[in-house]
Simulated assay, not measured.
Amino acid sequence: MKRTFALLLLSLWFAIMLFGCTSSPTSPSTENSDKATTSDATEAPLPETKEDVLSLFAQRKQESWVVLDCILTPDHASDRVGVVLFQDGDSVNAAFLRRDGVYQQCGVMARAADPLQLTYLGDGTISFHIRTEDGSVYLQQITCTIQGNDVSFVAKTGPRETTA
């Protein structure tokens, strides 16, 4: 009995190792990173309007995602040309796009607040308002930094800014 069980586990492990490691993408950012090369990114035209950024994003977005807003990144920090903010279920996500439409994304578990006030602060940092489950509104900042193959995000949540 023990020998049969051990043989079954060994067979299962072998099947997982053989078929479990496929080249199929498991996330949008992995899929998009594999589809384009760096040379593609430098040959594509620079988007000049929010509509251009939305058009780039539309090529790769999932149907269930609801686009909230987008913004150009005039300093092209980390070779990004724009950021699209979208709602995906219970999370607000920011997709930082290259000129060829490839993006890396980061999200926070919250809903978009009204007004959203998406703002590009420079150097790969955006800010916008979120609403938590208890109805509180906060200012969310996300910074995207890309150096070579290393992608990092820093998310900071703080009190909502009030205007005088």
Rank of each mutant, 00 (worst) to 15 (best):
Q59S: 09
D134C: 05
T162I: 07
V53E: 02
Q140L: 10
T30L: 12
G101D: 05
H129G: 01
L54V: 01
V151L: 09
T22G: 11
N149F: 14
T26G: 15
D150I: 08
D123I: 00
S29L: 09
Q62D: 15
G135Q: 08
T163V: 13
H76W: 02
P25K: 03
L118Y: 00
V67L: 11
S64D: 14
D75L: 09
V66A: 09
L118P: 01
A112R: 05
A15C: 09
M1E: 10
K156S: 06
V53H: 02
L85E: 05
C106H: 11
C21G: 10
H129P: 01
D79E: 15
V81N: 03
Q62F: 13
A110K: 09
T38C: 00
E43Q: 12
V154E: 10
V81T: 11
T162M: 05
K50M: 09
F19E: 13
M17K: 10
N149Y: 15
E48G: 08
S136Y: 02
L97R: 01
A94C: 04
M17N: 15
V154N: 03
L97K: 03
S127C: 06
S11F: 14
R99G: 12
T163K: 10
P74Q: 05
A155T: 15
T145M: 12
Q104N: 15
D79Q: 14
T30R: 11
G148P: 03
P74Y: 09
D134H: 01
Q59F: 01
D52I: 06
F57T: 07
R131C: 04
S91M: 10
V53I: 13
T162P: 00
S64R: 13
V84N: 04
A36E: 02
Q147H: 04
I126E: 00
I142R: 00
I142M: 06
G122S: 07
G158N: 02
M1V: 07
V67H: 06
T30M: 12
E133S: 13
I71W: 01
T26H: 15
G20K: 04
L116A: 05
V81L: 08
N93P: 00
D79W: 01
L56E: 06
T42F: 12
L8C: 14
I126A: 01
G20D: 06
F14M: 12
E43W: 03
C21M: 12
R160W: 00
D100F: 05
W65L: 10
I146L: 05
V151K: 01
S64K: 13
